[in-house]
Amino acid sequence: MSSAQHTRLTYAFDAYCGWCYGFGPALHEFAAAHADRIELQVLSGGLFTGPSALPVSAYPHVPGANERIAQLTGVTFGDGYRAALADGTVVMDSADAATGLVALRGQPGANALDAAAAMQRAWYVDGRSLSDAEVYRDLAAELCLDADAVAAAYASPAARAEAEADFLQVRRLGIDGYPALLLHTAHGTDRLGGPVSSADALTRALDQHLAA
Score class of each variant (00 low, 15 high):
Ala86Ser: 03
Gly127Cys: 15
Asp114Arg: 09
Ala122Pro: 11
Gly80Asn: 07
Val125Asn: 06
Leu113His: 04
Leu113Ser: 03
Ile69Ala: 12
Phe77Asp: 03
Ala117Gly: 13
Asn111Lys: 08
Ala98Ile: 06
Asp132Cys: 10
Gly127Thr: 07
Asp87Pro: 01
Phe77His: 00
Gly78Leu: 06
Ala115Arg: 07
Met92Arg: 10
Val91Thr: 15
Thr73Trp: 08
Ala95Met: 08
Ala110Asp: 06
Leu101Ser: 06
Ala117Tyr: 03
Trp123Gln: 01
Ala110Trp: 07
Arg128Trp: 11
Arg121Asp: 15
Asp79Lys: 07
Thr76Ile: 01
Ala83Pro: 09
Ala84Lys: 02
Pro108Thr: 13
Val75Phe: 10
Ala83Val: 12
Ala97Met: 00
Arg68Cys: 02
Gly106Met: 06
Asn111Met: 00
Leu130Met: 09
Ala95Gln: 15
Asp93Leu: 12
Phe77Asn: 03
Asp126Ser: 15
Leu104Ser: 04
Asp93Phe: 11
Tyr124Gly: 02
Arg128Leu: 13
Val102Arg: 15
Ala70Cys: 11
Ala115Ile: 07
Thr73Arg: 09
Thr89Gly: 06
Thr89Glu: 12
Leu113Thr: 05
Asp96Phe: 04
Ala70Met: 08
Phe77Ser: 01
Ala83Glu: 13
Leu72Ile: 13
Ala117Ser: 14
Gly80Pro: 03
Gln120Cys: 08
Leu72Pro: 05
Gly80Ser: 05
Ser94Met: 01
Ala118Cys: 10
Ala84Gly: 06
Ala110Asn: 07
Asp93Arg: 14
Ala103Tyr: 04
Trp123Cys: 05
Met119Leu: 02
Gln120Gly: 04
Arg68Leu: 13
Asp87Lys: 02
Arg105Ser: 13
Ser129Ala: 15
Arg105Cys: 00
Phe77Leu: 03
Gly106Thr: 14
Gly78His: 06
Gln107Arg: 05
Gln120Val: 08
Gly80Glu: 02
Leu130Ile: 14
Asp114Pro: 05
Ala117Val: 11
Gln71Phe: 11
Ala83Phe: 04
Ala98Gln: 02
Met92Asp: 07
Ala118Asn: 07
Tyr81Asn: 13
Ala115Thr: 06
Val75Arg: 09
Ala115Met: 10
Asp114Asn: 12
Gly109Phe: 00
Asp93Tyr: 13
Ala70Asn: 00
Arg128Phe: 10
Asp114Thr: 13
Asp114Leu: 12
Gln107Phe: 01
Ala83Ile: 12
Asp132Glu: 14
Arg105Ala: 09
Ser131Arg: 12
Ala97Ile: 01
Ala112Lys: 02
Gly109Arg: 00
Arg121Trp: 08
Ala83Lys: 14
Asp126Met: 01
Trp123Pro: 00
Gln71Tyr: 07
Pro108Tyr: 10
Met92Gly: 03
Asp114Gly: 08
Gln107Cys: 01
Gln71Ser: 14
Asp79Pro: 08
Asp114Tyr: 09
Ile69Val: 15
Thr89Tyr: 02
Asp87Gly: 02
Asn111Tyr: 02
Ser129His: 09
Gln120Tyr: 05
Asp132Met: 05
Tyr124Asn: 06
Asp79Met: 02
Ala86Tyr: 02
Leu101Cys: 13
Phe77Glu: 01
Arg128Val: 09
Ala110Phe: 10
Thr99Phe: 09
Leu85Thr: 06
Val102Pro: 06
Ala86Glu: 00
Leu113Lys: 04
Asp126His: 13
Arg105Phe: 03
Ser94Pro: 02
Ala86Val: 02
Leu101Ala: 13
Gly109Asn: 04
Phe77Trp: 04
Leu101Trp: 12
